[in-house]
Design a protein around this nucleic acid. Structure first.
Length: 844
RNA sequence: GCCGAGAUGGCGGAAUUGGUAGACGCACAAGACUUAAAAUCUUGCAGUGGUAACACUAUGAGGGUUCGAUUCCCUCUCUCGGCACCA
């Protein structure tokens, strides 16, 4: 018999699949249940398909092939997320136009993917950078705009004063431009946002429906960061006013003056707090450097120069730096103005400090140093008053709790109110409810919900993206491009590098920019920004079902039948961004009546990361990047597929090893050689009952492999297949029936060799038209088992006993073992623990 | 810093409604085959002691609950993913 030669058989079967359209998915097939098996599509940035893709796609493909054998009509598509910064950078680096490099990368990627033997339906390919696709990304922008969910406001961007370009966060290394190492500054630009915050509660509620990893849902929940509390308004008064008239009088005056106009905020400082019960402990206030209060009160602030300098300095710090608890907090008092604590009329100082962020809550806080660690630190540094208002009533009996000691000076937990006038003695929960009521009555505050989630900034001052379909007209303002005028085509620019005034490269094309207003016909300017690539990828799963539709984004009937996605597979790093954006867009399309479901991905699985052999990350600079092609060439795709899935639990990932891969190579060679042991059709089939141990293992393996694939536990499924193979090897002859079952079990993992062995049994059709085997539940239980005998919880002996042994019989047998008697001696037995089918534990 | 996950032999890993720690594979060692090597096959393989039977130790560190803890609880250390313009 010839040797196993993957190079020949893999080419043969890949050709066969293509010619016979084996993987074509007929959406109208009514005979089977649909199964939409989606994997995060490929980003053709210039880096080739690497091990990470190979890992992700193989795992998902094994699952898809298994589902197909289980009788589903499986749809498994692949496409290209082709817009974005890395693709643009690659083009700049190679000096070619991104449309050319992207096309080349896609073509190469497709060849690489086909070599891995993935079950993709190549007739449904999509490319987000094609006008046929981004026409509908622009259509999506229209949907959001018309629903009042797209708006423009000022927001800061990273700006390199030397390169005169906007930089992505990735291009800023330690506060400096990655190219010229100039200090990066923040520059404000008017930019487009999607109002994802309007959907915060819907996004939270939707989690109930999802069969997703717990941790992913938890991360999204924390990212959305819903918290309940109160909005409280503090009056701001000039210090001289309180000095002249006294606090009470000036407060009264201020209240009288403003009472008719509560909404006017310029003389009030509004804060959000989850702990309104600590209001009596608020001894100072802090505003973010960006807060409007500062500019509004510029004339009153006596140390404005100093304040201005501080604001300038904080501009260049990232949120991460600003909120780092380990860094010493800085701040400046706003001299000349004071705030009045609404609950007790006390006059308290106002600071500006960058540990308060402008984009969370109201951009200002009431500081309660006795009960918040950050405020506590700040108060100690600047010598501010600390008033304890919550007593810890929980008995901390453990003396070793270092946390309790650490927070002794600053108790952040819940307890009972003290130093809070008539509220003393209330529990935190009671106090919260009462004080909110009190504040509402006095018009000083109200119940409020706050979210960490921020609106989605979609503007990019970049060339390689979908242009935002908006025209600015002097007469009409923002005008949405009509649907009939879509797509707004990306102009073929020769120079697509960012311009030196912060505008998008699209501003270079006069033809693109100078347009007529669709409403009034006057000369107008086209928006030159492109959309965040996440917008393209937020709806791609819809387009796969109708990649060629020219007059609409998707076909309602097919959508109805095929969505939502049944299984989605991709990296956990997408938990808070792509996965949240796709859910948001889906909910918007649902609310606007375009689709009939409001969650895109019912079930989700993540793959881990494949690390280099030394356990470190793979990187180009280290030269340790593993490219699947090299291994496919050397060992074949089946070996590659098996090895990536065998080396670690799928959701965890692990390190690649050039040595380890030979193990699965040997495994497939053994499977191949099994052909020689096949019983000839004529030989008398011996009764299988003689071999009952083998039959038990066979049935156990069918059960385990199926269940493991269902749970994405591919490594243990492969291990079970290896164990069964080792048993086949011990046999003189292998029954064709068992062999047939085995090939089917192996086929999702190693489709090429399975097809070849299958056809050698005389079959004409692909093995993937077969049925996944059922196991015989009567045959998965062996008739004897190994009983573990413990004394005081330590294993002292093991014996083989019949499966139906009684407790008393088992105990009696166990106690009579020499090695057990030795330990029992003449000691008294306190109790005996018996675990059925497992163990006996004698406790002395 | 904040949010999330993880740590088991020389290596990748297995085992969790609390019940035999180390399945399966790699590496390594010995043997068979061979003129020889490779490949293949057989056997061994957590550590310490012992010819062995067996005993003790061991799942990042320390403590706790339990007849029994890799699994549950507390504290700590380290590693990884995300932190909103990489996608």
């Amino acid at each position: 018999m010839e040797k196993y030669n993957p190079q020949i058989i893999e080419k043969k079967w890949q050709k066969f699949w293509q010619e016979n359209k084996t993987n074509f998915c007929d959406f109208d097939d009514e005979t089977k249940k649909k199964f939409y098996n989606l994997v995060m599509f490929f980003y053709p940035s210039g880096a080739k398909i690497h091990i990470g893709h190979g890992y992700n796609y193989t795992g998902s493909d094994v699952y898809g092939r298994y589902k197909r054998l289980k009788g589903f009509n499986v749809f498994e598509p692949m496409g290209y997320d082709a817009f974005g910064l890395p693709a643009e950078n690659y083009a700049i680096k190679t000096g070619q136009h991104p449309s050319l490099t992207t096309r080349a990368n896609i073509d190469f990627g497709r060849i690489q993917l086909k070599k891995l033997g993935l079950m993709y339906d190549w007739e449904k390919e999509i490319d987000t950078s094609s006008p046929e696709y981004y026409k509908w990304t622009q259509w999506l922008f229209r949907v959001l705009y018309q629903a009042g969910l797209a708006y423009r406001k000022e927001a800061p961007v990273n700006w390199c004063p030397s390169c005169k370009t906007v930089l992505a966060n990735e291009q800023v290394i330690a506060g400096k431009c990655e190219r010229c190492e100039t200090e990066v500054v923040q520059k404000k630009l008017k930019q487009w946002f999607f109002k994802i915050t309007d959907y915060a509660d819907k996004l939270l509620a939707g989690h109930e429906k999802l069969n997703w990893p717990e941790k992913t849902i938890l991360m999204q929940k924390n990212w959305i960061g819903r918290s309940e509390g109160a909005e409280v308004k503090f009056f701001v008064i000039p210090t001289e006013m309180s000095e002249a008239n006294g606090v009470e009088e000036s407060l009264k005056q201020a209240t009288d003056e403003r009472s008719r106009d509560f909404a006017r905020d310029d003389n009030k400082l509004s804060v959000f707090t989850t702990r309104p019960d600590t209001l009596f402990g608020a001894t100072f206030m802090v505003v973010a450097p960006e807060h409007a209060l500062i500019t509004n009160h510029q004339s009153l602030i006596t140390n404005f120069d100093e304040v201005k300098k501080y604001i300038e300095e904080s501009k260049n710090k990232s949120d991460l730096e600003r909120t780092d608890l380990n860094k010493e907090k800085t701040g400046i008092e706003l001299k000349g103005i004071k705030a009045i604590n609404p609950v007790n009329g006390k006059e308290i100082p106002i600071f500006v400090a960058d540990y308060v962020l402008s984009n969370y809550g109201t951009g200002a806080i009431m500081a309660v140093p006795a009960h918040d660690e950050r405020d506590f630190e700040f108060a100690k540094k600047y010598g501010l008053e600390i008033i304890e208002v919550v007593k810890d009533v929980q008995k901390h009996k453990s003396t070793e709790s270092t946390r309790a000691q650490k927070t002794q000076a600053c108790f952040e937990g819940e307890g009972v109110a003290i130093n809070s006038d008539e509220f003393d003695g209330l529990t935190t929960a009671e106090f919260k409810e009462k004080i909110i009521h009190w504040l509402e009555e006095k018009g000083l505050g109200r119940k409020a919900v706050n979210y960490k989630l921020r609106d989605w900034l979609i503007s990019r001052q970049r060339y390689w993206g979908a242009p935002i379909p908006i025209i600015y007209c002097d007469n009409c303002g923002e005008v949405l491009v009509e649907e009939k005028d879509l797509p707004v085509k990306l102009p073929e620019l020769e120079n697509f590098k960012p311009t030196d005034d912060g505008e998008s490269p699209l501003a270079r094309s006069k033809e693109f920019v100078n347009v007529k207003c669709p409403k009034c016909g006057a000369a107008a300017k086209h928006c030159t920004e492109t959309m965040d690539t996440f917008v393209c990828s937020s709806w791609y799963y819809l387009r796969f079902l109708n990649p060629d539709l020219a007059d609409k984004p998707f076909d309602k009937e097919i959508i109805k039948k095929w969505l939502p996605v049944d299984q989605y597979c991709g990296g956990a790093e997408h938990a808070c961004m792509h996965l949240l954006y796709a859910r948001f867009i889906t909910k918007v399309l649902f609310d606007q009546g375009y689709i009939n479901f409001d969650e895109p991905f019912l079930k989700l699985n993540h793959q881990g990361m494949i690390l280099a052999a030394d356990g470190g990350k793979m990187s180009k600079s280290k030269g340790n990047v593993v490219i699947p092609d090299d291994y496919v060439k050397k060992y074949g795709a089946d070996v590659f597929r098996l090895y990536v899935l065998f080396l670690a639990p799928f959701e965890q990932g692990g390190s690649w090893s050039d040595q380890g891969i030979v193990g699965v190579k040997r495994f497939l060679e053994k499977v191949w050689n099994l052909q020689e042991k096949l019983k000839s059709q004529n030989s008398k089939v011996k009764t299988e009952s003689q071999n009952s141990k083998f039959l038990v293992l066979l049935n156990q393996t069918i059960k385990k492999v199926g269940e493991d694939i269902e749970n994405f536990h591919f490594n243990t499924a492969i291990s079970a297949l290896m164990i069964l193979l080792n048993e086949f090897e011990k046999q003189k002859e292998v029954s064709i029936i068992h062999y047939t079952l085995y090939i089917i079990l192996l086929s999702p993992f190693a489709p090429h060799i399975a097809e070849e062995l299958w056809s050698r049994l005389g079959h004409n059709k692909s093995i993937f038209f077969e049925k996944w085997p059922e196991y015989d539940s009567a045959l998965i239980q062996a008739d004897e088992f190994e009983l573990v005998v413990q004394v005081n919880g330590k294993v002292r002996d093991k014996i083989i006993v019949p499966a139906d042994i009684s407790e008393s019989e088992a105990t009696k047998t166990a106690m009579n073992l020499d090695n057990v008697k030795k330990w029992l001696a003449d000691k008294e037995q306190k109790k005996i623990i018996y675990v059925k089918n497992k163990l006996v534990n004698i406790v002395l």
